[in-house]
């Protein structure tokens, strides 16, 4: 575990906490894409199939349980909570799941580390995570007033991905035989998707203005 990896995981954890804070305390999910949250729940459910079979560390297992639990509870809150669900605007969140899920599944069947159920599901989760933010980014473009917590949530998610790239660079130079093309290419694509958002996020921060993405 290096500092970039730890910082990346902590940033990821912070993003989840920011979203839970918004949902629990403010009882609102305005500006949050349920589509993206459902895709993340699917990402974790398919990636962590090894949770009971391969023990890596207590840290690893604990984080997996946190990400699984939080992603499914966020979906539950947006769909079923009496007050929270009222702030969800379905008409704006129109991205189709299968438009992302099917290509990722096909790619996972073709490009994987080993052709077994667990490995294909793992590759699928990596590909799906790379694009899962798209419904959220589309929703942000449609939202006129992006509140601070939503902006911070997406910023933290992007920062987590950027830190993972630094982690891979560090590991490549410090560990022998550390080569992971599937995670590297997908991770790079995933981080690039945030480039546009980052640009406007820093602009709004620099000029002390409300965040707004051009349509």
């Amino acid at each position: 575990m290096n500092i970039f990896r730890l910082a990346g995981d902590m940033t990821h954890l912070a993003s989840v906490l920011v979203l839970l804070l918004k949902i629990h305390t403010i009882k609102s999910c305005a500006g949050i894409s349920l589509k993206t949250q459902e895709l993340y729940a699917l990402v974790f459910a398919t990636r962590y199939l090894d949770i009971f079979t391969d023990f890596i560390s207590l840290y690893n297992t604990t984080m997996k349980l946190i990400f699984l639990g939080s992603s499914f509870s966020i979906v539950w809150y947006i769909r079923n909570h009496k007050i929270v669900s009222r702030s969800y605007d379905k008409s704006q969140d129109t991205f189709r799941h299968y438009f992302l899920i099917i290509p990722c599944l096909l790619l996972a069947l073709l490009v994987n580390e080993k052709f077994t159920f667990k490995e294909v599901m793992w590759a699928f989760s990596i590909y799906l995570e790379a694009v899962a933010i798209l419904p959220q980014l589309v929703l942000l473009q449609r939202t006129r007033n992006i509140d601070n917590l939503t902006g911070q949530y997406v910023f933290l998610l992007g920062a987590y991905r950027a830190l993972y790239i630094l982690n891979w660079i560090y590991r490549y130079f410090t560990e022998t035989h550390y080569v992971h093309w599937i995670t590297w290419v997908s991770g790079l694509v995933q981080t690039l998707l945030y480039a546009d958002f980052f640009y406007y996020y820093f602009e709004s921060w620099k000029n002390n203005k409300k965040l707004q993405l051009p349509a």
Binding site: R5, D50, D54, K114, Y164, W181
Partner: peptide
Amino acid sequence: GTKSSPKDEL
């Protein structure tokens, strides 16, 4: 790919 590796990242 030829072999699968242990997944120590999240």
